[in-house]
Design a binder for these strands. Sequence first.
RNA 1: GCCCGGAUGGUGGAAUGGUAGACACGCAGGACUUAAAAUCCUGUGGCCAGAAAUGGCCGUGCGGGUUCGAGUCCCGCUCCGGGCACCA
Length: 861
Amino acid sequence: MASYPFRQIESRWQQLWKEQGLYQVDIDPSRPKYYVLDMFPYPSGAGLHVGHPLGYIASDIVARYKRLNGYNVLHPMGYDAFGLPAEQYAIQTGQHPSITTNANIRRFREQLDRMGFCYDWSREVRTCDPDYYTWTQWIFSLLFNHWYDPTVQKARSITTLVEQFEEQGAAPFDTLKEVGISFSAGEWKLFSDTQKEAVLNRFRLAFLDETTVNWCPEMGTVLANEEVVNDPQKGPVSERGGFPVERRKMKQWFLRITAYVDRLLDGLNELHWSESIKEIQRNWIGKSTGAEINFSCVGMNRSIPVFTTRPDTIFGASFLVLAPEYDGLEDLCSGAQREAVVAYAAKAKNRSEIDRMASVSKTGVFTGLEVVHPFTGKAIPVWVSDYVLAGYGTGAIMAVPAHDERDFDFAQAFQLPIIPVIQPIGETLEEPLSAAYAAKEGVCINSAFLNGLSVKDAIAKMLEEIVARNLGRSKTNYKLREAGFGRQRYWGEPIPVVFNDAGIPRLVAELPVELPAVESYKPSGTGESPLAGVPGWVHTPDGTRETDTMPGWAGSSWYFLRYTDPHNATRFAGAEALEYWNQVDLYVGGSEHATGHLLYSRFWTKFLFDLGLISWDEPFKRLVNQGMIMGEDGQKMSKRWGNVVNPDDVCDAYGADTLRMYEMFLGPLTDSKPWNTNGIEGVSRFLNKLWRLYVQEDVCTLSGENPSKEELKVLHKTIQKVSGDIENMSFNTSVSAFMVAVNELQSMKCKKRTILEPLVVLLAPFAPHIAEELWHMMGHQSSVHVASWPKFNPEYLVEQAFNYPVSINGKTRTSITFALDATDAEMESTVFAHPEVVKWMEGKPLKKLIIVKGRIINVVV
RNA sequence: GCCCGGAUGGUGGAAUGGUAGACACGCAGGACUUAAAAUCCUGUGGCCAGAAAUGGCCGUGCGGGUUCGAGUCCCGCUCCGGGCACCA
């Protein structure tokens, strides 16, 4: 017997859906909305392989399911179209990236269309489209024009900051105090524009900063930390291409994401995301609370602040360590040691990260400087070592070798004192220590007024003392760094800024700033983007243009908002559309974006919320991360391994419905799993079997007979199972449920319309083409529609819960569990006579009774 | 090193604390067929007994625990996958 005619069916229905614009949606306040979103793809030249649609199929099932349950479903798709591969290709061929990008998009679209997704393509967005990126630039302008006011915990216009300076000067601002900047209101007014901008730059949410960046000479660009990976041989290399990366100081645009750090952390708690993704974000943000303590230098009128999370161990601090990149390090050294320190710092700078970490024993040199221990009054030495990071805390630490492994190693290497100050509960530390005792529990010893206190109490006590004695303050630190926002690249959104003669950045009023044509896409190699080579574009009457472009994540940080109103020419999206479609209810995509896209989107959403532009401050209510589909060899699918399976080939051989159901059947959505072609036969057989249940000799003949109890049970069992599974995103088990249903109906020889018609509707989210065809063959003129969704009736299942005939009709479900032996003959009387049952049932009817081999094990009333 | 997951037949995987192995693949046998494909039916965790029907024992990475009852909960390991990694 041949396969059912999936080729005709699928192309015909895809054509019809398109012609009728069936999946185009509009605001409809009379219906509840549901917003299902896929992470939009980067249209690479390789096209889609069978791994890509996994998440798209899952979201499509949910979208169709919600639609059939009466929701107004927004389910859009678009392209994250700016990016490196198109630019690399342009460098090689001279072809404009937009040409390759468009060609790739066409190919993606053809592949996507074959799988029967219910996207509203009228809402497609492309991040490289000027109509789109004009609003990306607009959001950048807002970021530039706002600062984060910690007193009200939200972003405010920079003009409110200027007003405060004009009235109160620098005094109210900790940000300025920390870096030793102070000015009165009067002084502010007398500042030059350059001076004013230097201050404002410290507050703007988009700002310029000179920092050490990851410079990739080969690519001629700066890379984000996320774009740099460590190669065991070469050290730090670019993620793409594997080119060497070195450290270099450059002036760069940044976004002040750290202003939102607490809200980014707290907001996670309410989100329906996997715990692992939340943990990744928490770790990335890396909040730690502790103290900043000042150690005053011997023979110098200054002090060195250190950050510690363990102020309770301060009596064990036997030396300080500074990072090799420590600001003003040279000035702190005494003459004899200066040369050694400078040499060490220079060497450390060129050491690769891997090299630094791989070193078994710590390296370092003594600075010649000593500081006064604030509690013992003793002088302790200050060292320099590359195990201390310049970018975290103050770039200086107090070393407590007895209770920190790294400090312990260092102290051993350089024969520095190791003083135990925490005793594990119920134990005595043996001296000399063979390893650091780093656990955060125990009792203080050798610690004057802290002796006898627990670690927790000692930390609290010490924080009080530090403040009381004016030695420092409590302090919270984060691992999260400001987000670098400039790329020395052509194929990205131009940053809408010009610099005037004084070098002061000003926003370009007229947006978009469109990408000009260039002769060469090659990086200049000087650190400037190819845009710098277009003098006619760079020089404007207002000044010199910024030639950096935005990073890949800029356009993807707000695209979910644009889908709500993608063609709006006067606003990033209309207020009504935004309010109606609101948050993304379900977001499906890969977990690799945990610390990039997903974090930046949350940041931008919170910022836009602060400005009152949207009324919610988390973009994605529920997030599901689909697993990866590997090649049959267990490798990641890629051209390189020659193990790519093209979904088109599967559609040709088995049809799109089989592909859809098979991808869901492979296993839990979130698991990684190999593509295994054996199993696809089973799903294909199932759809053929289903087809034959309805169709003989190309005709659908179903009877109007009343269904039997058994048949109703099969239907309602399936409705219940599939509905629940879709809510839980457990699609593999729902495919199984369909298989069971078809097997059972087939063996019952059921040809009854009352059973088979609802089954088709239930199947429609999974296999929409065959469902539409059968629906049509059953005489319906329309597409499978809302009113036809089968409603679950538990009545037909009630009996199923019983392994033993007992009368029931209960509704509330309370369970009593106990052991009870009984033979078949005396079963019923035994159950009802049992004192526990009598007590628990309180006259309620029996609902469920589980009997295993003559033993009653569970009674539900 | 730290933080998350996970471990169930030959394979992918099912199991609100309640008959472990649903469903599918594969395999074996059978029906139809000149034959093959397709389709349908039966069997299929291991061991033992039995001619058979069937019965018994053992079984969810390892060791303990809670419970009438544990794949599921708790404690301690082993191995595998993922994330972070000198963040003081």
